[in-house]
Design a protein around this nucleic acid. Structure first.
Lengths: 346, 346
DNA sequence: AAAATGGGTGTTATCGCTAACATCCGAAGT
DNA sequence: ACTTCGGATGTTAGCGATAACACCCATTTT
């Protein structure tokens, strides 16, 4: 790649214009160009216009690497998330990217196969190498949570879906409240108790939902049936459903997410137990297609966009404060969405 | 941020170690450290070890901004994708991030709200500002495709799901083959013809599936019923299904994706048309929960991981070749997954 | 009228790295 | 023994931006 200096006349493979090129064209110093770019106050309006014109004429675009080098920070936010296509995490990630873009930040995603200590640390280090402005960790499990301790102070970090008990900047959905509402809804229409098919035990979301379910039962003085443990998959829901369908006393089931609920619906259908006439079912997440399950699923909706906004907000506050921040915890309330899968017991 | 030079003894707020610090500790020049880092051959083994020891001792990590500045490229791949939680695009993105991480590249995602010309160009420019090594555009619609023309030559670009007719580096799933297989499967079990509920008309995936469907019918000498246009949502499938359920002659439906199929299943169920006894249904995508629909859905699976791998491969080939590349098109064959939603007509 | 202010601008140093060239040295060729 | 060569290393010069400071020159202030 030849790069002629001085009086280049026919510089074919000319490089991208740099700040000095703009400066020359506008008849100012490169520093003034920098001032215009960064909206410094002390630039005459006329000069500002001249510089802007030169920028437009050359199609100049600032080199972010150079800026990152001298400032020590890039306009990049690193996100550490599990490599999953689960509805919750995927939506969250998408929502966060959108929010960040709105604030002028690009997002670099460090997907991680397992949410273990070592993987997360590796992802965090990669992000630090890129001098990201801040890091968001989607840490829905205890193992992920542990890794956060190793992140050096001074790096702005926000955790999403992390341990509610941990004193770090954190945004969560109030799982307990959502589960409580779902369970109470079933009790309110007349069910004597509610069974619960839970998510994987190491997820905070799971345990929060279990707690909310149990509390609603206890508050109502209802019997607490044994917990049916599962994971997040439709398959696990189907298996749990096969058991529940055999027990005549089961009239109401709260599933820890919509896909579990789907599996339960299928199992009920196969054994001839009608939903909602014989058994009521409630899910969690409100995936877009939940409305078209057979029957339409009553569920609990999480506002991922709100979570993303709050997380970004918390992160940028830390970036601005250069470390310490004010309030550092935000909780988003979920909402019960009532559809056709719930009815009074017969 | 004070930064004492020279004989700093008690430098509290010490900066991160730089290459010169490593060099000093190892008793070599910073350039030798650079050589070790970049695996240049001409370094004595003993020196190499000494440098590595110093790196480990200081916990040194190279500054990527500085490297990007001098080389003009970062170890970052820019991805432009629509801000959607659709199963296909989301899976693709996740798969690509994993593949890129395996090759030592981080991925910066430029989500875009609409797949129009202007939005895509903006995202591409943002990536170029970051001096990404290459750009991947997930361009499943004609409008997205148009924007590709504006990307200057010399920037490595790979399109995923783009226009099969466009002569750019491109990776696609053979939609036509998948649709052909699905339709033929229905004809093979004895249906006289197959109805098709299609995706949005401006998506290449949609039109490819329509073509495959039509071709299979024509090859079999079957009547081609009118196309039922929809989008990708379960709701649209439900609406289409409400119509199809009223027509006694409809015995087989091929839906352009699994969520459409879900809506169709629901509509059939509501009007008392049994699947598969009265009507057979086939979907497309094989979303994880398709196995637990009522009944389990026969569908066509796309191998997104393979798409991602090929795309990365094509991109890195361009990066290495500094522009021109050899073969530039890869097509992934989808696979029919047979489940319980298909049966011979009664 | 001289001094103090402060807005507008240019000059210089620097961030941490890689490229290009310079240098040193011992082994090989004549 | 005297080039020649090439491996191992050091030196210097940028990459393109921002920070810090210096410097004008019109206003105010005293």
């Amino acid at each position: 790649m030849s790069r002629d200096e001085g009086a280049a006349v026919e510089n074919k493979t000319s490089r991208d214009p740099a700040m000095t090129d703009v400066a020359r064209l506008a008849g100012v110093s490169h520093q003034t160009v920098s001032r215009v770019l960064n909206d410094h106050p002390n630039v005459r309006e006329q000069t500002r216009l001249r510089v802007r014109a030169a920028i437009a004429e050359l199609g100049y675009r600032p080199n972010k690497a150079a800026r990152a080098l001298v400032t020590g920070r890039s306009q990049l936010i690193g996100v550490v998330a599990q490599n999953s296509t689960l509805y919750g995490p995927a939506s969250l990630l998408a929502a966060f990217e959108e929010a960040a873009a709105g604030a002028g930040f690009a997002v670099s995603v460090g997907r991680v196969k397992e949410l273990d200590h070592a993987s997360i640390n590796r992802a965090v280090e990669r992000h630090r190498d890129e001098r990201v402005a801040g890091i968001v960790v989607i840490a829905p499990t205890a193992s992920a949570n542990d890794a956060l301790a190793d992140i050096p102070a001074g790096v702005p970090v926000v955790t999403i879906d992390g341990d509610p008990a941990r004193p770090t900047p954190l945004v969560t959905v109030d799982q307990q409240a959502g589960a409580y509402a779902a369970t109470k809804h079933l009790l309110d229409v007349g069910h004597r108790t509610v069974w619960h098919v839970s998510g994987p035990p190491n997820w905070f979301d799971s345990s929060g939902r279990v707690e909310g379910w149990r509390k609603a039962l206890e508050d109502a003085g209802a019997e607490v049936p044994p917990l049916v443990p599962a994971d997040w998959s439709a398959r696990a829901g189907y298996q749990a459903g096969q058991m529940l369908a055999r027990m005549p006393e089961v009239t109401a089931v709260f599933a820890a997410n919509d896909h579990l609920a789907l599996g339960i619906l299928r199992a009920m259908h196969e054994r001839g137990r009608r939903v909602p006439e014989d058994v009521s079912v409630v899910g969690f997440d409100d995936v877009p297609e939940a409305e078209f399950f057979i029957p339409p699923l009553t569920t609990v909706r999480q506002d991922f966009a709100a979570v993303a906004r709050e997380a970004l907000d918390l992160l940028l506050a830390q970036v601005a404060a250069d470390g310490g921040a004010g309030d550092t915890r935000r909780t988003i309330a979920p909402a019960l969405i009532s559809r056709g899968s719930v009815a009074p017991p017969s």
